[in-house]
Computed example of a mutant assay.
Amino acid sequence: MHEVSTGNGAEREKTEANAATGHVIAVRGAVVDVDFAGHALPPVDTALRISMQDRAPVLAEVQAHISETAVRALALQSTAGLARGVTVQVGAGPIEVPVGEAVLGRLLDVAGVTRDDGAPLPDDVARRPIHRAPPPLSAQRGATRLFELARFLFRPVADIIAQRQASAHALMNEANAAKASAQVERDALSAEREQLATQRAQALAQAEADADRQRAALLAAALEEADRLHAQAAADRARESAAQAEAASALAVQLAVDIAGKLLDRVPDSLRVAAFVDGLADGVRSLSPAARAGMASDASLQLTAPRALTPDERAACETALSVALGSTIALHAQVDRALIAGLELSGAHGIVRNSWRDQLEQIHTGLLRDDGHTR
């Protein structure tokens, strides 16, 4: 392939060396968009050289300015392998093609490149812009000239045309085959797309149904949990109310017992012991024989009184209890003012109580009962 020239001589080479450069920003078939950011835009119809790594530069022509920094060009050669970012060089002017006697009988393309596999054109062949204005009618000749087609054009051109037609038919057949294959693939893709759409719709419907079931299950579980918590809260409130009522009742009973204790505490000291000796002896007699025998033999018997006993009171207690136990005993006395009044006999085998503290405790327990059940 011969390289296309867009200017003449050293002046053209100097102008191209100083020309602006751009970069490809879009490729759509033969249409190429080029950006010249930082440089002046080349005029419409200006030639452009698009650099290619593995072959000669692609020749293009500016067709329009699409922005302040970019132009749209038409490639006059194949753009296969052309990518964005490729460097573009601005030519010295519009595309020029060779003219004159040297091109008679030769086959040239629109870029002025020879396509007949003949000898290269001379280096000094004249070139003219492809957009040059036609000569005026006054400069044109009206005489008829006869060209020797057999010598200059027919034979080589006929062979070339035949080859080109064969190549064109082959390309058309390949294009038709490729088109048919593409149509088959397109139909297959359409069918696959429809199948995927159907599967997607089914999957969405299934997912929605699953979501509805899960939502219903979660709602039912939430309602059940809410009912359980409501019942538990009601039970807790009931227990709390019962506990508060029981606490209030216990406080009332305790207050009543305390009041009774305060009143009984005013009993004269002379009545706090003597009046309870016989009752304590009767309590000992009510024990089983084995319990009385064990208590009679217990050397650690303890007699508890609300105050210190006088010698007479101590003697009266020992006498009454010895008679009740059927054996002479010696008592160890201790004082517990919480008894208020009365006596209590305790040992290793049991305890006998005859005191107001014991009576008040029994009253307290009785008051805490309601309908025969402890609160």
Rank of each mutant, 00 (worst) to 15 (best):
N8H: 11
N8Q: 10
E16I: 02
A30G: 11
D33C: 13
D35T: 13
P42R: 01
A47M: 06
A47E: 05
R55C: 13
L59W: 00
I66A: 06
T69P: 01
V71C: 05
L76T: 02
L76W: 07
Q77A: 07
S78Q: 08
A83E: 15
A83S: 15
A92G: 05
V97L: 04
R115T: 05
L121C: 01
I130D: 02
P134W: 09
P134F: 12
P136S: 14
G142Y: 08
A150P: 01
L153C: 06
R155F: 10
P156D: 07
D159Q: 10
Q163W: 05
A168L: 07
A170N: 06
L171I: 03
A180L: 09
A182S: 12
D187T: 07
A188Q: 09
R193P: 00
E194K: 04
Q195T: 12
Q202A: 15
R215C: 02
A216Q: 14
L218A: 15
Q232Y: 05
R237P: 03
A243Q: 06
E246T: 15
S249V: 06
L255K: 12
A256M: 13
L263W: 08
R266F: 03
D269T: 14
L271A: 10
A275T: 13
A275V: 11
D278I: 09
G279Q: 09
G279Y: 04
A281I: 05
R285K: 13
R285P: 02
S286T: 08
A290H: 10
A293D: 15
G294M: 11
M295H: 09
A296N: 13
S297Y: 11
Q302V: 13
L303I: 07
A305D: 03
P306W: 04
P306H: 05
A316N: 08
T319W: 11
A320H: 08
L321Y: 03
T328P: 06
I329A: 09
A338L: 03
I340Q: 00
L345A: 01
G347N: 01
I351T: 09
V352P: 00
S355R: 00
H364N: 02
R369N: 07
R375F: 02
